[in-house]
Design a protein around this nucleic acid. Sequence first.
DNA 1: CATGAATGAGTCTTCATTCAT
DNA 2: AATGAATGAAGACTCATTCAT
Lengths: 228, 228, 228, 228
Amino acid sequence: MPAVASPASTVSQPTITASRRLAARQARRQQLIDATIESIARRGFSGTTLATVTRGARLSHGVVNFHFRTKEDLYVETLGYLAREHYALWRDAMLNAGPDPAKQLQAILEADFDRRICSRKKLAVWFAFWGQAKYRPAYLEIHHRFDDERYVEIYRLCRELVASDRYKGADAEGIARSIEALVDGLWLNRLMYPRDIRRQTARTDCLAYLATVFPHHFERPETQGCAA
Amino acid sequence: MPAVASPASTVSQPTITASRRLAARQARRQQLIDATIESIARRGFSGTTLATVTRGARLSHGVVNFHFRTKEDLYVETLGYLAREHYALWRDAMLNAGPDPAKQLQAILEADFDRRICSRKKLAVWFAFWGQAKYRPAYLEIHHRFDDERYVEIYRLCRELVASDRYKGADAEGIARSIEALVDGLWLNRLMYPRDIRRQTARTDCLAYLATVFPHHFERPETQGCAA
Amino acid sequence: MPAVASPASTVSQPTITASRRLAARQARRQQLIDATIESIARRGFSGTTLATVTRGARLSHGVVNFHFRTKEDLYVETLGYLAREHYALWRDAMLNAGPDPAKQLQAILEADFDRRICSRKKLAVWFAFWGQAKYRPAYLEIHHRFDDERYVEIYRLCRELVASDRYKGADAEGIARSIEALVDGLWLNRLMYPRDIRRQTARTDCLAYLATVFPHHFERPETQGCAA
Amino acid sequence: MPAVASPASTVSQPTITASRRLAARQARRQQLIDATIESIARRGFSGTTLATVTRGARLSHGVVNFHFRTKEDLYVETLGYLAREHYALWRDAMLNAGPDPAKQLQAILEADFDRRICSRKKLAVWFAFWGQAKYRPAYLEIHHRFDDERYVEIYRLCRELVASDRYKGADAEGIARSIEALVDGLWLNRLMYPRDIRRQTARTDCLAYLATVFPHHFERPETQGCAA
DNA sequence: CATGAATGAGTCTTCATTCAT
DNA sequence: AATGAATGAAGACTCATTCAT
């Protein structure tokens, strides 16, 4: 114990120890969240217990209720982590894409099919939470909060593209909705048929849709077969 | 009924009783399947127990294991029922749509947004099963079997439309995949945001997509706002 | 239904029908008892349910409670049947063995290793009931009743042999007890190690014991190896 | 407490705690095994449930599945405990009996009628397990393993006695088998008729048998009536 | 902070028994 | 007499949560 080893540091020590403690605490929490994702991905929601989580994290049984008041708390934070991770990714991509709305829109969608998001593991967890959302207000709230923000941006970009006056009568709202639905559907199909629908295929299908509705802004991607 | 026709009915009696029994048995099974759907819709997968099912059916808890070997069996048959119901609906619609591939395609998709399929209740159960499919081979098998058949038809129709030679370079396969993804995604969004996305809105979005990729065959539907 | 077919027999019919009914009833009961023995032999006491019994008897679920008030009743009657069967066998053998006590004693013991008694099937059921006897007064009572009668005879014969004055100081009571214990023990070992201890081996061991304690009345049997 | 005794105790602390934990764990397991024996003795196999066991141990019902994976596991370990207990007893007795085979043989058999083995309680459990053995390979395996070892020794001793050349034509194998059968049979009768057959009576009967087959090595015991 | 033993509510499943047909 | 559907009590097992160390 350093506290005992160096009596001279009595003043600054506590603060350092405290922050170090906090960091360790955070690490533990993240360790548990990661293990939760892993377990849900491998065993599904109903197959996941605190035991599978702690075993996966190589920690003792009791820690969970130490770091998280309840199992539900752990789940909520896990979902929050996933949501924030996705959010950060598409947000950054969008912000770094420059002023062109088409580029921004594409950046957002590319993020959706990023390796870190569109992996089977993450999708499995993602859908597991969706499947429960209806019965857990806490999950629903998280989904809503992040989805709303995303829809706002996509809708904005669609509107801007439509406003460029080359797409008469186009329904920006409907297109925004469809884009979101398409991404969700592609994710779902990728989860269910990972062999038939590779990540690149899904991405291509999505971009093909953009090229169809906004032909002046998006090029039709190379036809991407199932094996791509 | 021979029992009425001939005085020798003592022979045929057992048959009548047997068939009556069988009918009653079937009715009970369906009653339990309905209660299962109801319970999953209301409480989700993890909130559904045999107790909630039997309570919903106003039966004793022993019946389930009487009519279905196991809880899992009940679930499998419930999923099978849903899948067959959906299948029968779009199949009939397609067959009754005449020879025009566009009409057939539209008929299939209209069925997807039919009241009996696209209700919140059914969707909730549908997604509950999807969420579990990865961990239950039996569910997966059912999903695959019905999805495959549906994809075959949709792909066929897309191919026929593309072959009409007015859509150069169109990727029938990709379009078929996208249609399915779009439907799934619209369903999911309808489940999560039933207030924002009404059944008609989802249907319109879907038809709008068809009008975009096959403009010579489908008319752009009336723009349908969220409140529609 | 014959009762309907011949209206002339209205007088004598009832009696005949009644006795026929009784016979049929008895047959059903025996059918169930046989199935019970079969099931206990194959699955043990705890593996036997009314379902396994009725299935074995190719009868419907409900008959048991029709012919026997309760499951326990069926068991009691099954044990009674076994006990009576054994009793009849050794009793007949003894009575048919003539006046010589040695012959009578041997006859009793030969019956113990008769095919009909000392089969694995019967032994399994026999021990299953013994295992429960302590907790079911009804079983205990049956065991006691038949065992007592048997002990009385064996003890009598031992006494007569000892009284022949060629076995000074022999303890007839102890020998009688030992004979019974030996038979029970051989049965048990035969049940547990049917391959090592064949029926003939057990019989020989038993007779060898008689030849040891009553050498003037019993000849030492041919040494019978395990394979005999 | 070592923590007080030595300043370096911080290192050994975990080990001590661990070993203490292990001891406590073992104690709990034994507590449950004891309660299982108690319950089977009092209520029989079919009357014993995890509830009766835990109630007897004054523990909550969850513990069983905590310390033993399954009820069957608990049973297997209970049987193992009984078998080991018996084994240790006769083995020790034999090893401490000196070089004389007759003394060794007697020692083994005395152990069989020791208070700790031949109590009604233990016998009841013992036979309960025998009654199930045919249907539970795990039980059978334990019985076989320990029985074999015992038979090997008894057979060896019988052979040595026979080889002393004073028992011409004696069948060592048959005698060994009979000894085991006799013990089992005496146990069984003691279980069924505890009032008629006291422990000492059974012991005497057994020794009387030895005196009969090996008169040069064993003295005929005092005649021991039922009331002894 | 961490461990892991312990608790007890909750779930599925089995099965003897009842009962309408 | 017989069938088989239905009941509900009881049992084994799971697992989130608590708590002493």
